[in-house]
Design a binder for these strands. Structure first.
Lengths: 199, 199
DNA sequence: GTCTATACATCGATAGAC
DNA sequence: GTCTATCGATGTATAGAC
């Protein structure tokens, strides 16, 4: 077990360094020579640990994808009002960003580019899974009377996901309190910014 | 004048074709040979019309940027309530998407990658300009009492811009009525999705 | 497990004939 | 204004010595 730890560490070290570079400048713009330099070896040596450059991306995304879905599933589970579950979903999004900022940045950044290729199909399956979790929560809120039933569920979902998807572009844990952001979202999404809502 | 028209047409033809390819697969992933094939010539011939590949991107973005700012400026101009001006701003966003979908897709797609390079600095200046237009409208709404004054202006702006920035990813003019989308945004942003807001 | 060395493909861009 | 031909840089990946 300890032996395996050491063996895996080198691989993990490469993945972590590559993740930082991918997040910063994009997968395509990052060369295997960049990655190798980052971990102090030559590009040829990388291929002892990974078969291809994209395999590093797969390693990062498969791991992060599992983590992300697990977080959302736990957040969406019954318990509390629909708004409270929505709050937990938003919280899960920021929490994931805090713990794996590079992976989240890569996920969002490559969605319309690299991840459209067939070999990354599992990523879109994951997004569908997350969408159904969100839609389920919103819908249950409509049935319970917490959420307006006169708006399209998927329209609401899209707005929420678009807002969350932009997080890697601006979220800085040292500048923004996680709870403040979540409450800000919940506040605006539930009550709106209209003056009437505040009275 | 007619003469110049013809001369400019070839250049425009190249830019248009390149724009479609850039929007679909990203600037970096699109080769000069792809572009040349698209307009029926060989890659070397492109360089009679453009000095570099990036110059084609500049041509597209400078033109679109001017168009975009003009639209937003016209929408933000005084007249009507703050909500009505906000409605016009949203409308301008979708209108720009309808008329130049490729350029808008490129703008969003390359924001975190290519457009971070110094030679594209004017793009970020443009975004700052647009932000101040939005913030101005929101703030005037707070002062007039239309919009809640207990929330951060830039937080609201960011949510709105994040939603608009995702448009190229899903907006299909044949499936979504422009006015419906705008009204949906206005409705949720002003009143929220909470049941209380509907009563 | 890393390095040396290099194969092999593809890229942006250029020079000069037509 | 386009084509032919190609340069030089850069990319991923491989083979074999150490």
């Amino acid at each position: 077990m300890a032996r395996r730890r050491v063996k895996e560490d080198r691989r993990g070290e490469i993945a972590k360094c590559a993740g930082a570079l991918f997040a910063e400048q994009g997968v395509r713009a990052t060369t295997v020579r960049d990655i190798a330099e980052g971990v102090g070896m030559l590009s040829g040596s990388l291929y002892h640990h990974f078969k291809t450059k994209n395999d590093i991306v797969h390693e990062l995304m498969r791991q992060y994808g599992d983590d992300l879905v697990a977080r959302y599933e736990q957040a969406a589970v019954l318990g509390g009002t629909a708004i409270e579950r929505l709050r937990r979903l938003f919280h899960a999004c920021l929490e994931a960003n805090l713990q794996n900022p590079d992976e989240e940045a890569i996920l969002i950044r490559e969605l319309d580019a690299l991840f459209r290729e067939p070999e990354f199909g599992y990523i879109h399956e994951m997004l569908v899974q997350i969408e159904s979790l969100f839609v389920g929560v919103i819908q249950s809120g409509m049935e319970s009377g917490e959420i307006r039933a006169d708006i399209d569920v998927h329209f609401v979902y899209r707005m929420m996901m678009d807002v969350m998807g932009a997080v890697p572009r601006w979220y800085d844990p040292s500048q923004h309190a996680k709870d403040d952001v979540v409450e800000g979202w919940i506040d605006i999404f539930t009550r709106g910014v209209g003056r009437a809502a505040a009275e």
